[in-house]
Design a binder for these strands. Structure first.
Length: 908
DNA sequence: GCTCTGCTAAGAGGA
């Protein structure tokens, strides 16, 4: 029997005398949520405590070594104890651990196997790794290559073919490292050769069953990882190093033991593990056994597996309490550690206690406070990502599908083996269900359940009526689940670290308000018909530190960016162009290319990003990762303009690059650490954005929701310029946004803009429209159907409006419909023709249409947080050029002052 | 309560 619950108070640890001698025990007061005989039921939607009654917590006694884990618990933490026994003590009903039990602290927090491996070496090493990541270096790249080739060999691929293909795939990285493909191939061949020989031997003498890399997730132990290989049900771990000792290294054993736990959960019974040290060649005879083989088998007892779970518990408890490891937790000797210097520097600069000691002087207090604040915020965000992982087993299939996090309606059709041993999986969709999955996404493809069934990480190649995936191993796929990624949080943390610990002092003086941004003299006029745009370009070009361009809707900020980049390029500078979304990067890049015209060879502009992220028309500029190292390197280094998302700016490849200036578009949509990821790479930076439009998208509510752009506008107003002439909206349309959000400063750039109406469009006769639609802004009062996130009345009325516009000669593609909720978006889509763009406010940001119809989806009152953020209204109302129609319930809109003013304007 | 984009994964090694 297993139990799961919430710790309800202090844990008491003591020693008692038993018939076996002196034993430790910990008494944990636990508010029990579920008691069940199988783990699946343990995690199924946990019942709320009985109505109103305060349940007395039950005491759970953790015996012997489990006291160490129990000692980590704090009130409010989650606890899972497997295989408990019922226990009556002084008339009280209790539970206690048995010899079979595992105690798991915060079981929903899914810990990586590599994290446990780092942690056992030294908890502080785990922390340092998390802070700064592993930079690009040859031993690591080579290790990765050898692993890939090993996987290929297991899948039956020819050795030489695999080496060639894998080395080619890493062309860009190898180029940056200055390695030649021949030398790398030879190096990999030496390592892989040893494995091949060993593999052959095994195949001849015994009935081996093999499986290459598999992602394994344990809902019992809260561990996830990818085993290099599984042989006859036991883990095989490959190491590209030399080890002539009799025993594998302890941390390697711990790693293998993690995989053993993961395999046991899937019904295996694992008692051995194998470590393969590829540098052990025939010349390096094992000093004790005389062995020639690279393989070392070792037995894995119960004790090791439980030790591993205790390590995992330490890590999980530390992450839940936001602790910072000092190194004293473990017994590693600092003088043997490769990271000793880094450890001391980080300790010194952040004034942290550490076993290695401190070096240097601490950062100013404001910077340490900033670091702590954002560290906490990013870790909070990380825990939200972990909540997403837990949902893989805590929610059932239908809940996941309703949440748009899974497609469960697939019918497996076929699979075929690709060249190189990978697999292509095909399935058809049996319903029109929506999900947030898109082509190019990495997903968990399973034959029923992402954790309990047969599942593989797979790439979505195609997603329409048919679904096509590629994966390392075959799966009869019937379900796809979103696979959450910590990549963004990892990179935010590294960017924060780099900004504070590696950033130059002058930059930090400006960011922390200790110095004002400075500007050089610029005589040139860049734009002669728009004073603010010209001022913005002048500031951007002349900035010694930074410039801030505030661009309200339609004010030509993309053009301004492009003009500024052209000026910088003409001055011989190397420019980084970045933004949070791929869409924003491609938009800005498009304008830059147009502006540069023939002034720059096209091979001097490079877009860095994944194939699925980069828009098709920008694909010719995309930097391929694979190829001849020297060519790939030259392409990147030769580029004078490099465009990439801020997340990509945090990649190992981009971190090797340096720029004179970084321009960040849509900067108000970026968190502070996200902005650092881009500007860390450049001497100076220019942020362009509008903090009156949508803020950064984050899961947790904390300081990440305010952008660096907004903070700097307040801190250094003199470094900012607001563009004030808009080229988009008819004057009537613009009026409300201008007065409500921009102090009345937003004006039409030209009389033509102010006066534009539908009459200007070819083939449109406004007089055929009903009178009510003659005004560029109109309100259509619809009482609404009273539902929460949809409104069929509004949807029907919108369909009629579209027909009316169409019969007046308007093209469907000139009409956009905006709704606050996704549910209403799909409701409206059912009513209107396909080529009318219907989407949420959030997704409409950055684009515009001739006609915009807004569906407020509210009856009687404005319910929900979505209406509280007025920035969203600003975005919705500033998308149209010539006509805006607001559809909603007047009673509801009148209930809030901003919406009431909006209504007055629309009806005026 | 609601909106929401990023990103190959996770692990690769040095003595």
């Amino acid at each position: 029997m297993h139990i799961r619950g919430t710790v309800a108070g202090d844990v008491e640890v003591r020693s008692v005398s038993t018939s076996y001698g002196e034993s430790d025990l910990a008494e944990v007061p636990l508010q029990i949520d579920t008691v069940a005989t199988d783990i699946e039921s343990i995690h199924a939607s946990r019942p709320a405590p009985a109505d109103g009654e305060d349940h007395e917590p039950t005491t759970v006694t953790c015996w012997n070594k489990w006291t160490e884990s129990a000692d980590l618990l704090e009130a409010g933490m989650e606890l899972l104890v497997t295989d408990v026994a019922e226990d009556e003590y002084q008339g009280e009903q209790r539970y206690k651990t048995t010899g079979e039990s595992y105690v798991v602290v915060e079981p929903s927090f899914l810990v990586n196997v590599t994290s446990i491996r780092n942690w056992v070496e030294c908890p502080r090493l785990y922390y340092l790794n998390k802070l700064s990541g592993v930079p690009l270096n040859y031993p690591v790249v080579k290790g990765t290559l050898v692993h890939e080739v090993f996987g290929d060999l297991l899948r039956g691929r020819d050795l030489e073919e695999s080496i060639d293909a894998r080395v080619e795939e890493r062309g860009l990285q190898l180029g940056l490292l200055g390695e030649s493909p021949e030398a790398v191939a030879e190096d990999v061949r030496e390592n892989a050769g040893a494995i091949e020989g060993w593999l052959e031997q095994g195949r001849l003498t015994e009935d081996d069953s093999w499986r290459s890399e598999q992602l394994l997730i344990s809902e019992t132990f809260g561990i996830r990882g990818r085993a290099d290989a599984i042989r006859r049900g036991a883990p095989v771990e490959l190491k590209t190093g030399k080890n002539l000792k009799k025993e594998p290294r302890f941390k390697d054993k711990v790693q293998a033991a993690c995989y053993a736990l993961l395999l046991e959960e899937r019904g295996g019974d694992v008692d051995t593990g194998t470590l393969l040290y590829t540098k052990n060649s025939a010349l390096d005879r094992n000093e004790e056994t005389g062995d020639l083989t690279p393989a070392k088998d070792f037995s894995m007892g119960d004790g090791l597996l439980k030790f591993v779970v205790r390590l995992r518990n330490e890590l999980a408890a530390m992450e839940m309490t936001e602790g910072v490891p000092t190194g004293y937790e473990g017994s590693a000797k600092c003088e043997y550690c490769f990271e000793q210097d880094t450890c001391m520097v980080v300790s010194g600069r952040l004034d942290q206690e550490s076993k290695a000691g401190q070096i240097g002087t601490p950062l100013p207090e404001a910077e340490r406070e900033y670091f702590d604040r954002f560290y906490r915020a990013i870790e909070e965000e990380r825990r939200e990502v972990h909540r997403e992982y837990a949902k893989l087993w805590e929610q059932d299939a239908q809940e996941r599908a309703d949440d748009d996090r899974a497609l469960i309606d697939l019918e497996f059709t076929e699979m075929r083996e690709l060249e190189g041993g990978r697999w292509e999986l095909h399935a058809t969709r049996t319903s029109g269900a929506t999900s947030k999955l898109r082509e190019g996404d990495l997903v968990l493809a399973s034959d029923g359940h992402p954790v309990r069934g047969n599942s593989e990480l797979a790439m979505i190649e195609r997603l329409d009526d048919e679904v096509v995936l590629t994966a390392d191993e075959p799966v009869e796929v019937s379900r796809l689940d979103v696979y959450p990624s910590e990549l963004t949080t990892d990179r935010l943390l590294a960017a924060l670290h780099d900004a504070l610990l590696k950033g130059n002092e002058r930059r930090k003086d400006v960011l922390f308000g200790r110095a004002d941004p400075e500007f050089g003299e610029i005589e040139e006029t860049f734009i002669d018909n728009n004073a603010r745009q010209n001022e913005a370009v002048t500031k951007a070009v002349g900035a010694n530190d930074c410039a801030l361009i505030h661009g309200p809707p339609g004010t030509g900020k993309t053009y301004t960016i492009a003009r500024a980049i052209r000026a910088m390029v003409e001055r011989g500078e190397r420019v980084l162009l970045s933004a949070f979304t791929n869409r924003a990067v491609d938009n800005a890049l498009e304008a830059v290319l147009e502006q540069l015209g023939d002034s720059l060879e096209s091979d001097r502009v490079v877009r860095v990003g994944s194939e699925s992220g980069v828009r098709d028309d920008m694909a010719p500029y995309r930097l391929e990762r694979s190829g001849e190292p020297e060519d790939r390197l030259a392409e990147l280094e030769n580029a004078q303009v490099v465009a990439a998302t801020t997340a990509t700016c945090g990649s190992r490849v981009m971190k090797e690059q340096a720029f004179d200036v970084a321009l960040v578009d849509e900067a108000a949509q970026l968190t502070e650490p996200g902005t650092h990821a881009a500007i860390n790479l450049a001497e100076r930076f220019v942020l362009v954005g509008d903090h009156e439009q949508l803020p950064p998208v984050v899961r947790a509510e904390n300081e990440l929701t305010e952008s660096l752009f907004e903070r700097l506008i307040d801190l250094h107003p003199e470094a900012g310029v607001m563009l004030d002439r808009q080229y988009r909206m008819n004057q009537r349309i613009q009026a409300f946004a201008s007065s409500e959000f921009y102090d009345g400063q937003l004006r039409p750039a030209e009389p033509e803009v102010a006066a534009r109406t539908l009459d200007d469009l070819e083939g449109v006769a406004r007089d055929t429209l009903p009178d009510s639609l003659h005004d560029p802004v109109t309100f259509v009062d619809v009482e609404g159907d009273g539902s929460r996130y949809t409104d069929s009345e509004e949807a029907a009325r919108i369909a009629e409006l579209i027909e009316t516009y169409e019969s007046a000669g308007l093209e469907r593609t000139d009409i956009g419909v905006i709704a606050p909720f996704r549910a209403q978006v799909s409701e409206i889509s059912k009513h209107v023709p396909e080529d009318v763009a219907v989407d949420t406010v959030d997704r409409f940001q950055g684009s515009s249409q001739e006609v915009i119809i807004v569906s407020f989806t509210a009856t009687d009152r404005l319910e929900g947080p979505i209406f509280e953020d007025y920035r969203r209204i600003n975005v919705a109302l500033t998308r149209p050029k010539r006509a805006l129609v607001l559809v909603g319930d007047a009673t509801a809109l009148e209930s809030e002052p901003v919406y009431e003013r909006m209504l007055e304007w629309a009806q005026g």
